[in-house]
Design a protein around this nucleic acid. Structure first.
Lengths: 220, 220
DNA sequence: CCGTGTTTGTGAAATTGCGAACAAGCAATA
DNA sequence: TATTGCTTGTTCGCAATTTCACAAACACGG
């Protein structure tokens, strides 16, 4: 009987956002309860895994009935630490940084982009989201920006060569977690959680499974 | 003694692109051999894991010396099925699709974007990369485009609501693998490998580890 | 109030992945 | 050719994760 306070396995943490997403959509379509089977289908995983994952958060289901959608959504949010919005700063105003800044998918899910910086002085001053009055600022201002706007998350959208410098700047500016799109291994203090998403890497993994298609499975 | 033809574990497949990247950089800086310790450092993983991973591809190292950089790079490429370029089509010409189209990181690593389609007729005809003469085409043309340009990979950069339709179109058009940026579980035949990258999901996972920072580890 | 049908929560087994440790093997040197 | 030093390939035990299978628990209808 795991209680809240016990650890949640890493593998479970990686799936909680999936469940959260499914629960939000269920709530939107008016469902009030959901079974582990249904939730598993929506999240594309095994039903037993859903039950075990959820059991790490506490005992929030009702046998014979299922889970209360709204209540469970709150519990998952709370476990993930999604209490209120977390402001984001993007480092690097190239193609990717520009797109991420405008991408609504961040703000919609609680991560509003409130600032963008670049090391190139020529880019400083460019308006990004007119409605929100966001303008590209210089990376030297990072510490001040993070402090004043209470920014929690840094996103690295620079070329690979500048990624480590960007990471170092973000850490000393005081962000609490980092998401990088640069295909390099970063040297970041243990105390700051970080992840890398590399698009070409994803395609290369797919390439492997494609080369074996017909004979082998691929992971969901 | 695993021979080529034996299975490569999923966990290893996910790391091969990391090694590949490191090997390419080593080659570029003129190194001819590399030890598992050095490679592990560059890839940010344990040295024993590197050796075990590489042993699944065959016995390509020399005891007392290390691995031949160029030769190993070729073996990793071959295992991943990276023989020559794989052309990519992007579905969805919103912010994200636009950025991905211009993003050099794809072409540099063997995945040139050769076409972009959208369901909105108003966007059709927009020039994307003048130099390459790429213009937005209508999604109805997808099958023809995939056939004529021998496209292997489809990238979904549509809003979540349209993602399943995009996936279905890509499958019937004949692409061999799919990378989606939409935060939904897709229904795609077993024979087509696919992956989803959801940016908000990544931030939510970070949120969890940030909320526990100081007390707990985070995954690399 | 009891029986029935349903669904959770969780042991326990099976699978997968990890990391330490070391024997085996190669190069270089004398 | 024998010795030395270094690094791979692999074995082994452990940890994490997945999956099965089922008892426990609840709602509901009679």
């Amino acid at each position: 009987m795991p209680r809240s306070g016990d650890v949640v396995p890493d593998a479970t943490v990686e799936r909680l956002p999936l469940y959260h997403q499914a629960l939000v959509e269920l709530a939107r379509s008016g469902e009030t309860t959901v079974s582990s089977v249904k939730l598993a289908e929506l999240a594309g995983v095994n039903a037993a895994k859903v039950r075990k994952d959820l059991s790490f958060l506490g005992s929030y289901g009702t046998r014979g009935v299922g889970y209360d959608v709204d209540f469970l959504a709150v519990q998952v949010s709370r476990t993930l630490g999604l209490t209120g919005d977390s402001s984001v700063v993007i480092v690097g105003f190239g193609n990717l940084g520009q797109a991420l800044a405008k991408y609504a998918g961040f703000a919609d899910r609680g991560f509003p982009v409130v600032a963008i910086v670049d090391a190139d002085s020529n880019k400083v001053g460019t308006a990004v989201k007119e409605a929100d009055g966001i303008v590209v600022q210089h990376v030297d201002e990072l510490a001040k920006i993070v402090r004043e706007k209470r920014i929690a998350v840094g996103v690295i959208a620079t070329p690979a060569e500048s990624a480590q410098a960007a990471a170092t700047s973000l850490v000393s500016a005081g962000v609490q977690s980092i998401l990088s799109f640069a295909p390099v291994v970063l040297d970041i203090p243990e105390s700051i959680p970080w992840r890398t998403v590399d698009l070409a890497t994803e395609l290369q993994i797919l390439s492997f499974y494609q080369a074996r298609s017909g004979s082998l499975q691929h992971p969901a």
